[in-house]
Design a binder for these strands. Structure first.
Lengths: 199, 199
DNA sequence: GGCAACGGACTAAGCGGTCGCTTAGTGCTA
DNA sequence: TAGCACTAAGCGACCGCTTAGTCCGTTGCC
């Protein structure tokens, strides 16, 4: 628990964020009221505004932190090796694992963009675009090195990201597969998508 | 235009549905009011209830027709050949093309399930489950025939469906790729996912 | 050491507006 | 004249957010 959460205000703020994450993931931003969030956190509706400027500001906080986490997950996995195939597999494994484990937050991060203000959406869109370009560059590197065989690295990058992101839509904690099983399978899948080892 | 749409009531009903499709796709079920829908259709709010029992009933109609269309697209493609690889490629091409062309409706069909009533959701969930089982069976057939090489047909089916469905999330009419380009690329992608031609 | 004051976290109550839906009335066409 | 499609107006409930007051803990002063 960080130092900001050791204070009474910090603890309350964290409870509000957790309550909002659960509600936004389940019913969406517009399907959730501030009264819903406050009740789930054991507080009054007015308490929300002691800690957050607005309902949209709460969504933005959740979205921003979620995107920063995603970027960190990808960067850390990408930095683990210089080998294009191992790197893409590592990135996909980490990406898929992240989306399975954090599927609740990932649902908000990926599906509640339209509820953000124009300014906040512009910022988040820039992060998402950079992620896509980074993955595309990894795939292009593999093609340049003669390790990958795909006619279209841009489309392949879109497909790889789609596989990971869509886990947030279908994953269930009580489903048949563990996050690790999905991550292993998807790591191999990413290599198939880019045609690793076909030459 | 079907006979039910040649009447004044039919024309009005169709305009309401189109307005709802656009609004639900853009802002979600809860982010759209019946006043929004009525205004976009050039009518008063009360007119919505002349043609539909409730706002949720309108969503259910759109969702049901959308799912029936998806089933028809898959069935028609699957019936085109008995060869497992050609069949899966045809199904994926049709599925991807459908999601790109109809991305507006596809967004509602795939992302606005939680707004359905329990009864309606049960019905729609059964359709979705059947689609997944059908695709999984196609892949299992390919494995049995020695044409596909995947360690896990169930996960491969999930991945193939994810690729197609996620098009609804990212596709833009003003994007760089045409629906046909995406469909061709994804048809090949499906074969890579299942390891067609690796043995 | 005790008391008073201050500040932060929170609540009760409420505001102005919007929501899904209903009803009584209107107009037009067959 | 009757019925269908539609509208104006409205109901009860809920919405995001604000404000004035309360309570508790901390700090400072005597």
């Amino acid at each position: 628990m960080s130092s900001t959460e050791n204070t009474r205000a910090g603890a309350s703020r964290a409870r509000l964020v957790e309550a909002a994450v659960t509600a936004f993931a389940e019913r969406g931003f517009h399907g959730t009221s501030t009264r819903d969030i406050a009740a789930a956190a054991g507080m009054s509706p007015a308490a929300v505004y002691v800690h957050h400027r607005s309902k949209e500001d709460l969504l933005y906080l959740i979205s921003r932190v979620g995107h920063d986490d995603t970027v960190a997950v990808i960067r850390q996995a990408a930095d683990s090796t210089d080998d294009p195939a191992a790197r893409l597999a590592a990135v996909m494994r980490a990406f898929a694992l992240h989306h399975a484990r954090e599927h609740t937050r990932a649902r908000i991060v990926n599906y509640e963009l339209n509820a953000l203000s124009r300014e906040h959406l512009a910022e988040i869109s820039a992060i998402r675009r950079q992620i896509r370009l980074d993955v595309q560059a990894m795939i292009q590197d593999g093609v340049d090195a003669g390790v990958f065989d795909t006619p279209d690295p841009a489309k392949a990058a879109m497909a790889v990201l789609s596989l990971g992101i869509d886990i947030a839509r279908w994953y269930r904690d009580d489903g048949s597969w563990t996050p690790e099983e999905i991550a292993d399978f998807y790591a191999d899948l990413a290599l198939r998508v880019v045609g690793a080892g076909r030459r």
